[in-house]
């Protein structure tokens, strides 16, 4: 089991299937309830975020877009992990602990 440390963006604990998406034009592989893993989010990403069960980003802090919008949707978020998009592979099972700012690759 590999642990990725980041910053707590929005609290909560979720285990699920990760989808690494670097561009919103590649959303076709995303399914409702997937964990969205990306570099960072912007307003263009907002409509997909409500369908994610958790968010993990490489960049950002507790006041970042990903953190704020995840909070609004009531889903856990770990932000500022630096390398989540490199370490997590598509379809891998991961646990996102938004309270402690930790992601576990199971």
């Amino acid at each position: 089991m590999k642990v990725i440390k980041g910053i707590s963006g929005s609290r909560g604990l979720v285990t699920g299937k990760a989808k690494v998406i670097l561009d919103i034009e590649n959303l076709d592989k995303f399914e409702k309830g997937d964990i969205l893993v990306t570099v960072s989010t912007s307003p263009q990403w907002t409509p997909i975020m409500r369908f994610a069960s958790a968010i993990v980003t490489d960049i950002g802090g507790s006041l970042s877009h990903a953190a704020i919008v995840s909070r609004e949707f009531g889903i856990p978020a770990v932000v500022g992990t630096q390398e989540a998009t490199k370490l997590i592979k598509d379809g891998q099972k991961v646990t996102v602990n938004g309270t402690d700012g930790v992601v576990e690759i199971l």
Binding site: I24, E25, N26, L27, D28, F30, K32, Q44, P47, I48, F51
Partner: peptide, 19 residues
């Protein structure tokens, strides 16, 4: 801009159906 990304809009419309 968002409206210039038809694939993304299509995927999002599909996700929103029945949601």
């Amino acid at each position: 801009t968002f409206r210039e990304k038809p694939n993304a809009i299509e995927s999002l419309l599909n996700l929103n159906k029945g949601a």
